[in-house]
Design a protein around this nucleic acid. Sequence first.
RNA 1: CGGAAUGUGGUGUAACGGUAGCACGCCAUCUUCGGGUGGUGGUAGUCCGGAUUCGAAUUCCGGCAUUCCGACCA
Length: 413
Amino acid sequence: MRLSQLFTRTEKEAPKDEASVNAQLLERAGFVYKNNSGIYTYLPLGWRVINKITAIIREEMNAIGGQEMFMPALVDKRYMDSTGRWDVEVAFEAKGKKENEARFTLGWTHEEVITEIASKYISSYKDLPFSSYQIQTKFRNEPRAKSGLLRGREFLMKDLYSFHASEEDFLRYYEKVRGAYHKIFERCGLKSFYTLAAGGDFTASNTHEFQVLAPVGEDTIFICSKCEYAENKEISSLANGGLCLKCGGKVREEKSVEVGNIFPLGTKYTEALNLQFTDERGNKEFVVMGSYGIGLGRLMGTVAEIYHDKNGLIWPESIAPYKFILITLDHTKEEGDKLYQKLLEQGAEVLYDDREDKTAGEKFADADLLGIPIRLVISPKTLKEKSVEMKMRGKKVTELTKLKEVEEKLDLS
RNA sequence: CGGAAUGUGGUGUAACGGUAGCACGCCAUCUUCGGGUGGUGGUAGUCCGGAUUCGAAUUCCGGCAUUCCGACCA
């Protein structure tokens, strides 16, 4: 992508109507646009990041047998009535303009919907286990959207649902999802703490959250400094400075962002929607269920909260919108074009700052703000050495690489 | 939903109740060319509705929006 063609532009000053670091940087850099409180557009650069995250999530979900599908965002009232979740506070209602038309909720979760669908295809223990996920916009009328992408009213979510013949089988899968989630967050550059928590509207039993430590987080968790056992403060029996129940290590209190959660649902939904199967002995049993969520925007926002410096974003390579940013200085566009073509031919993801009306300072400042991992500079200075200068975002050192050797020296994939 | 703050060109800001100004951006042009270069000309604004007043960006009332604190948070 040529920067001269990119339709967004960076902003020198932080927007005055955003206080959180993630929103300030992502808006300044042109990754997102705020349409309303808690409602954001992903602009081209931001959408690339989302797609990177999506790809990672898909890989890990597929690896544990999740089958991707896509459910309606308009969820008929009958679904939510089946479990008494029509009148929840966060639900948006949607209906046509005419009187007495069907009423819908804008999907804020899909347990009811997928359970009904599953009831068509699951009738025997042989049909189980089964798990399926989707990546879709969720709508929740949050009483207070806040912190940029961290708590929105409309947001992308990966929701996975699993169905099992027994509690034991469910628990085995639960642990698999746990592993997959840790991998996902790790691949996005985040260290997540597996945290015992409450289930809210979803289930009466305890659930687990994946928490990433960050001051901006709205959750407070207790973590054992030794074994990393963690509990959400809202249900915790631990105390700051106290001792861990598991290993006796010292417990500390931290602010954190809930980037994912996993819920044991038991038979709450399968009973409500009468999803039963016939077991080996011919008995009818209710299917045991779990649901597992990850907010994509929140994940992206959390990465921005953690990976930045005073000059801007610092994307982990795995989810950066582009791996390289190529800058030309002082009328070296011709050589820049050549290298850009070469990189493209090698399949490299490169953002090319070919703007001729910008000074070196502006280009460097933009490269920093955008947070592209590897910066390549071509200038009269480097060309004298028949080289291109390389610098990693967030590091001070630069090194020269011969133009001829770019392909061998750089990992272009 | 309770509390607080703030709404001025695209962005960030200034203006005692009395000419809406500055910087950045953008357009044109010249200049400069390794960390937001310098000049000249141009472009564009008081959230919405009402009230007070000779006169309202400024005061008052109502609304809407955004942010923050709290409640809530699958």
